[in-house]
Design a protein around this nucleic acid. Structure first.
Lengths: 271, 271
DNA sequence: CGCGATTTGTGCACGGCTTCACAAGCGCCT
DNA sequence: AGGCGCTTGTGAAGCCGTGCACAAATCGCG
C-alpha cells in the first residue's frame, strides 16, 4: 500500500510536514493506536531508542503481525533488521490521531464520576486539556477542581465557543444526558464521550463513544458464568492448583486470544 | 439454530429451569446483550409488555436484523407478528449473563476514581454488589463509602475467600496495578476490570477487560482530526447550518454507520 | 565486499460478523 | 374459516479483520 511514499530514496526519508488524512484507516487499527502510543511512551521513558514489532506488540498486548499491519497502514517507518524508531513513531501516531496540540475538552457533570475524571492527571500527558467544567447544580458552581472553576451549564455555549471545544465528556445522570448532548451538539461539539448508561441520539456528523461500567461487568459476568458451568461439568480439582501459580513473568511470546476485545494476554508462568 | 427447543408445542413454552451454557455464543453478541438488557428494563418501566425487534433495536442503538440474530442465538422467544415478551426476555438475558443472583465484586483502589465507582448506584440495579473495598493507603482504611468500610489491601485474600468473589475492579495507580492483579489472581479472582492504563499479564483462565478514558478520547480525537481535514478540503460553509439543526426528529431509517463501535444511532423521540 | 542474521512489510487464506432478503409463523379481522 | 398484514427467524452473500508465512530490505561482521 504505502499510502505516502514520497521519493524512493531509501534511508533518507525526507519527512514532509503535510500529513495525509488517512481517510480509510481501519477502525480496528485506530482503536489500537492509542495503546501503541502508550506503550511507546513507556518504552521511551525506559531509555529505549528503537523497538522491534515483537517487543512493541508484547508491550501493547497484541499479536506482532497485527501490529506490523497496523503500522504499515499509516505508511510506517520501520527499518528492516532494526525495528521502529520510537520517537519517530510517537510523532507519527500522535499526528495521525490529531494530538499534536492539546485538544480542549469540556466535561459536563461534576458529580462523583465527574470529579474523578476532572482530577485525572493522565489527561494532560496524553494530549488533552480540560477547558471547561460544567454542572447544573448551582451549589457546585464556583468550586475549583485542579484550579479550574465549575461553571453553570448555561454558560455551555459561550465556553464551547470561547475555547473552540469540539470534544465533550458527559458524566451526568441518565435523565440529563440526552438534553446535555443536544445542547453540546447545538453548540458545535462533534465528538462525545458518554458515561451515562443510555443511547444518545445525535446527528450523523457527531461521533459518540460510550463507556458503561455495568456493561463491562456484565460481560465479565457472562464469562464467569460460563467458566463456572463448564467447571461443574468437569471436576473442580483443577481449579485450585492453576490459580496458585500466579507468579507471572514478563511475556515475550505472542498471545492468541480469541475475540475482538483486547482481553487478557497470557504470560509465562514460571514454575 | 434454536439451541434449545424443548417441545414443539407453540405457545405453551414450558420453560425448563436448566439453562443451557451457550458455550459458543459469539463474542460480539455477548457484548451487546447488556445493552439490550438495559433497554428492556427501560421499556418495562415505561409500561410496555412486548416489543418488536425494530423497536428494541432502536432503543439499544443497533440494527434490527442484528438484534434478531443475536436473540436467535440464545434460542430466543419472540412471537411472529407480535414481538418479544419483555419480561421473559429480561429473564432470559439475565440468565445467560449469569446475573440471576447478585455477584459479589471487589474494588481495589479507593482514590478519586475508586470513590466514584464505589458510589455508583447503578451497581445494585444491574446485578452486582460491591462486597469489598480495598486500598493500600492506611489513611483511607476505615473510611466508609455507602456503608461499606475500606479495608487494607492485606485483607484481600481473606475477603475474596469470605465473599466468594470472582470479579474484581482495579482502580489503582498504574504502578500498583500489576501487583494487585497478581494478588487477585492468586486469591482466586478470575475476571478483572482494569481502569489502570496498562496491560495486565494474567494466566489464560483469567479474563481481563480494560477501560481507559484517554484511549477513548484519543479515538474521538482521530475522528475529529479527520473531520477537520476533510472540512478544510471542502468549504467550511456547511458546518454551521448542519449543526444548528440539533432538533433530533424520530428516525426509522437504518442509519448506516461504518464500523464496530456502537456509535450514535438515534432513538424514537415521542413528540 | 559479500554473507548471514534479523526484522519489516504484505499477499493470501480463513473465520467471524454484518446485512439483506425472504419464507414461515402468528394474530386479527371479516 | 380463511385471508391478510405484520414480525420473527434464518439462509446466503459480502465485508472486515486476523494471523500465517515468506520475500524484501537492512545491518554488522568477517
Amino acid at each position: 500500500m504505502s499510502h505516502q511514499r514520497n521519493g524512493n530514496q531509501p534511508g533518507t526519508s525526507v519527512r514532509r510536514s503535510t500529513m495525509p488524512d488517512f481517510p480509510d484507516l481501519p477502525e480496528a487499527t485506530i482503536a489500537r493506536l492509542p495503546e501503541y502510543l502508550r506503550a511507546l511512551h513507556h518504552l521511551a521513558e525506559a531509555g529505549h531508542e528503537t523497538i522491534s514489532s515483537e517487543g512493541l506488540a508484547a508491550a501493547a498486548g497484541v499479536n506482532s503481525a497485527k501490529l506490523r499491519k497496523d503500522l504499515s497502514h499509516l505508511g510506517s517507518y520501520g527499518t528492516r533488521g532494526v525495528g521502529y524508531d520510537i520517537e519517530l513513531l510517537i510523532e507519527q501516531i500522535q499526528s495521525v490521531l490529531g494530538l499534536t496540540e492539546h485538544r480542549a475538552v469540556a466535561l459536563v457533570g461534576v458529580g462523583n464520576l465527574g470529579h474523578a475524571l476532572a482530577g485525572y492527571a493522565g489527561f494532560g500527558s496524553r494530549g488533552f486539556r480540560i477547558a471547561a467544567l460544567l454542572d447544573a447544580d448551582t451549589r457546585r458552581v464556583g468550586e475549583e477542581i485542579n484550579g479550574l472553576p465549575v461553571r453553570h451549564i448555561d454558560e455551555l455555549e459561550a465556553l464551547v465557543a470561547e475555547h473552540a471545544i469540539s470534544i465533550a465528556v458527559i458524566a451526568t445522570p441518565v435523565h440529563a444526558a440526552q438534553q446535555v448532548a443536544d445542547r453540546l451538539v447545538a453548540a458545535g461539539v462533534t465528538s462525545i464521550l458518554n458515561f451515562a448508561p443510555c443511547v444518545l441520539a445525535v446527528p450523523d456528523n457527531v461521533d459518540v463513544r460510550k463507556v458503561d461500567l455495568a456493561i463491562e461487568l456484565q460481560i465479565l459476568s457472562f464469562h464467569e458464568h460460563r467458566k463456572a458451568s463448564s467447571a461443574n461439568g468437569r471436576a473442580a480439582l483443577e481449579s485450585v492448583p492453576t490459580v496458585t501459580t500466579a507468579k507471572v513473568a514478563a511475556a515475550k511470546l505472542p498471545s492468541g486470544k480469541k475475540a475482538s476485545a483486547p482481553s487478557t494476554i497470557r504470560a509465562v508462568i514460571t514454575p
